[in-house]
Nucleic acid binder design. Sequence first.
DNA 1: TATAGATCATCAGTATAGCTGACTATCCTT
DNA 2: AAGGATAGTCAGCTATACTGATGATCTATA
Lengths: 146, 146
Amino acid sequence: MAAGQSEALASRLGYLLKHVQQQLAAVAGPAMAPYGIDGRQLAVLTVLAAEHPLAQHDAAGRLGVDRTTMVTLIDELEANGLVERHRSVEDRRKNIVRLTKAGQRCLDGAGRARDEVEREFLAPLGDELGQQFVRALQILAGARQG
Amino acid sequence: MAAGQSEALASRLGYLLKHVQQQLAAVAGPAMAPYGIDGRQLAVLTVLAAEHPLAQHDAAGRLGVDRTTMVTLIDELEANGLVERHRSVEDRRKNIVRLTKAGQRCLDGAGRARDEVEREFLAPLGDELGQQFVRALQILAGARQG
DNA sequence: TATAGATCATCAGTATAGCTGACTATCCTT
DNA sequence: AAGGATAGTCAGCTATACTGATGATCTATA
């Protein structure tokens, strides 16, 4: 436990989660920067690559973000040529969002960078505790959804 | 893993941390509400009770928040009569912040409520994994500070 | 077939958290 | 006494994310 921190907060879940998340963001941001995207945009590319085709609305659901937030997110990605919007032919209310070639390349590079950052980030835990940590997060993320 | 979520993000640290934190906040908020404070304000009360007397600047350091954010935080707590500002006699630049009687009562009640929320939140992990999870968070929070 | 209700994307406006930079008052060093 | 550092405050900015309204489209049902 380093300089400024408080002993009294060391076991407060909210405090710990917030600060661990901030620290991850602090190292992940610079790692993504060379690819011209941030973590949220990479997450969008990731779900688009995994599940295809995907409407904006469904992508928002996968990521747990608001529909209006997704509009902005896709706007940015589209402006950078990483994704394309296409009106769905089956349901013309929907925008199908597709990765472009450049989007796929960006995902490949930035995805690798992210994986490397995550590995380094978890390194202080060692192998076993690191895996238990991720498993615990998965359980907690799943336990109260929807 | 519930309805809307993406398989592809299940192992992404940033995604998991963000959503677990949001879910904790979603249950912690209502639990604090009866005491008229939120999680950030409770954190302030907690460090003030643990370490005493504490200047605003030092409290900000303990919590890892900006000095200007602390001004607002203390403003709110003071307006509700939970803390008092006093100019330090040794160093008249500093505001010593003290819990009032009401602040102590609030901390007692809200602190218990928070502890209960945290216990319930971690319950899906079981005893052992829950403890490993908290230990992992403490290591990660400490590993890269300052 | 006509109509009512739901869904999807978008936009404008709003709220909040957190920051930077400027300012004042005070302290410390020389 | 003077210069530089520190503590608190404030105004203003940015990022994030929400609500509510709107238009287009789909679905169900009478």
